[in-house]
Amino acid sequence: MSEQEEKPKKKTRREFLQELGYVGVGALIGGSAIFAGVNYDKRKKQVDRIKVLTAENELIEIDKNGVTKVVKSKKEILTYLQKEGREGIPGKRWVMVLDLSKCKNAQRCMAACQSSHHLRPEQSHINTLKMQESINTPPYYLPKQCQHCDNPPCVAVCPVDATYKRPDGIVLIDNERCIGCRFCIAACPYSARTLNWTKPLHDDEDKDKTYNVELNVPQRKGTITKCLFSADRLRDGKLPYCVSACPNGVFYFGDENEDAVTNGTTKVTVRFKKLLADNGGYQLMPELGTKPRIYYLPPKGKTYPFQEKDKALLDKELE
């Protein structure tokens, strides 16, 4: 080792030229590589780069290959959904109008609702009732659900803020919070709420799903469930499950701020206030001061008969 170091490092002329040649070739290759690289980069700018908005609201451009998708934990997704579910959809004031002259008790709304919210057959967020006020007034069908009251008695009595009113008008129920005291059931004059008295229908299948308060799935044993105005569908810009499922054009759904409601069957959009004004729109039990967000058009000029089998039931009740 020491012997080698002692030797003076003296280059011959040939060696020098040889090395110079290496450097020259290397520089040439390197230079063309840089040139090619810059060219490649230029091309890449157009196809492989993406624009990204940072958390600080700054628009930047980054290499697509450098992007890694952030995998959120179940808890983070839940926190996000819970926050989103409490805040609602900004700028909206959802309303629903039901034209009772169109309802034929097809019960498609009930079926669609029950399957999307994983409800048992005896549980319903929307229930088509056979109604008759007195002997001489005509019978009719009334699809009835949570009225999403602006002065909701259920929200007032809830001891833990599990059921709450959102700025966009929807009353939701948070199953991560509900203690199952059922004071809201006692307080609701529309009988709109139901409890998961036993194990929910799809308890085993839904076990690993993250709870979405806007869908109220997975359902939880011992907690309340009720109509949510299909808040999850609204977030995707779609009409609620029941509205889309109705074959008879009963449901109109829309935004009070825009004064526009869309019929779920015909997809025709009309003026909300004009619809009410032209057809004598009304609310259920407004005298209780609950201020419902659901409006009904009276069953005037019905094109179908009230079913005989249903009539028998009403006669018994009116006795």
Binding site: P159, C178, I179, R182, F183, T223
Partner: peptide
């Protein structure tokens, strides 16, 4: 014994809302 979720009993204290007669 009447609670659907007795495991969440403490929520009444943690998340209690003064406008509820239960509180």
């Amino acid at each position: 014994s009447d609670m659907g979720r007795p495991d969440r009993l403490l929520y009444v204290i943690i998340h209690g809302r003064i406008q509820s007669p239960i509180v």
